[in-house]
Each structure stands twice: as C-alpha cells, then as structure tokens.
Write a protein that binds this DNA or RNA. Structure first.
Lengths: 129, 129
DNA sequence: GAAAATTGTAAGGTATGCCTAACATTTTGT
DNA sequence: ACAAAATGTTAGGCATACCTTACAATTTTC
C-alpha cells in the first residue's frame, strides 16, 4: 500500500530527478539551492525519501534514485509539464508565472483532472494552430 | 500589511461565509462537519481568524464576519466558482470531481492566473455555445 | 426548572516541514 | 599531505494544523 507523497517530498523528488537527468549527480546543496531551503532540511527530506525506498543514500554518500523513485518523479514532472504548457500556451501567462502556478497545482490536481487536461491541451492546440 | 491566509484558514472562511449566506448563522459544529475536522480544531481556527479581524466572536458567542472577512471570503469563493466552472464545463469533469479540484487549486493559484482563467472561461463558453 | 443532550473550549499530544548553530566529513588548493 | 573551504549531519526549536480527552456552557426535553 503506497501512500501519497506530500507536496514537499514531491518537490524534492522532482528536483532530484531533473538534476540527475541533466548532470548525472545531485548533491544536497544543489537541492537546497534549487528549493531555497537549508541543507539540514534536505537531509531530512532525503531520509524520508530513503525510508520510502524512492532513493538510496548513506551518510555523506551519493544520492541514487530507485526505479520506483524515478517512476514517482516522472509522474510529477509530467504533471508540471502539462500544466505549464496549459498556462503558457492556452491561458497566456509568461513562462515564469506559468511555471510557478504549475509548481503549486501539480501537487493537488487529481489524476482524473490531469488526464482530462492533457487531452484538452492537445486538442486545443491542434484546433488552434 | 495584511499577510496571505493559509489554505486552511481560507477553507474555514469560505465555509463560514457560505453558511452565513444560506442560514444567517454558523455554529462551530457546522464548520466542523463541513470540513471534517474536530470541534476543537474549529475553535483554534476561529481564534486565529478573530486575531486577524476577519471575524468577531466571544467564548460561546455567535460568529460574526467583519467586512474585511467577507471581502476575503468572497475572494476565495470567486476563485472556487470559476475553477469549478472550468473543470466542469470545459474540462468535462463531473460536479464532485470538479469541486474537489477547485477546492485545492483555489488556494494556490496566483491572482494573475486566476484573472486569465476568468477571461478564458468566459470567452470559451461564449465561442462554444 | 432540572436532567440530558448538544455544543464549545482548554490542555496536551502528534506529524510535517522548516530553521539555526555546532559539529563531522569530504573536497580543494598549494 | 594537510590546512582551508565546502558540504553534510545532528540536535534542538518554532509554527501550522490536526487530534483526543476532559470539562464548561448552552440548549433541549420532559
């Protein structure tokens, strides 16, 4: 029975995943800068994510995402991407504003609503191109 | 300098406002049932809202919203209404699902994004009727 | 007009998520 | 290689937002 991640943990996971995709590795300090939290807070979050088997790490060791972790993270990233597209290309917000809203909404939108928005965005952009 | 309300306090305010509109009065227990929290939690929230001058009440007394409180509450309700309309009439979710998503997103959407969505919803429904 | 039921509050507890300060470990630079 | 700098961790604190339990006040009912 896997329980839903908190918004906060989803944020950490998302950043870690994006970082690994770009740079192969992530350090706590990268995450801390990206999310504007203290290094201590990152340590806490890493412990929680490790407990949930979404990543593996030892004290002072490097951060490795598990398959399950990637799965969860890609899920969040997908929500973000679609929402950002919606706000930018359909609603007409600038990139920054679109991203900020996507960041917050990605944690609270239901799966059903997300799926429908994916459809809507695709159809809308098709019809209006 | 008025600081942003937490999602939680916005929820309380919204329920209180809706209740007063419908029934003239609200009791702590109504709020508690509506939000699925304990009566004790309602007391806490009422204290916080009273501290912020959004409502007035005394121990065991009735709950009266201030003008400022109504203003804030109407604001939240407006966000909810528009988002619900969007999810129901444009995205095609059923009423319940639309409402649940509106409930969560209303607390995190930016003012700018909200305004643009209002425009979008109006224009879209106009063009597609 | 009490006793019973309902409603409201206070006290004390839990979990999350953040912080700072101090200390541990690792990495860098010479 | 080793001192200095950077990074990571721990410990202890704070705020929010819940909870339960016990008690206080009010309302209902007979």
């Amino acid at each position: 029975m896997k329980e839903k991640l908190t918004s906060s943990l989803e944020d950490y996971l998302e950043v870690i995943c994006n970082y690994i995709d770009k740079n192969k590795i992530v350090r706590a300090i990268d995450i801390s800068k990206e999310l504007n939290v203290s290094r201590a807070s990152v340590t806490e979050a890493l412990k929680k994510l490790a407990n949930k088997k979404l990543l593996i790490y030892d004290r002072y060791g490097s951060i490795i995402m598990t398959e399950e972790g990637f799965k969860e993270a890609r899920n969040v990233v997908a929500r973000h991407t679609t929402l950002q597209k919606f706000f930018e290309e359909i609603i007409g917000l600038d990139k920054t504003e679109a991203s900020q809203n996507a960041c917050r909404i990605e944690h609270v939108i239901s799966e059903q609503a997300f799926n429908k928005i994916v459809e809507f965005v695709e159809k809308y952009l098709q019809d209006n191109k």
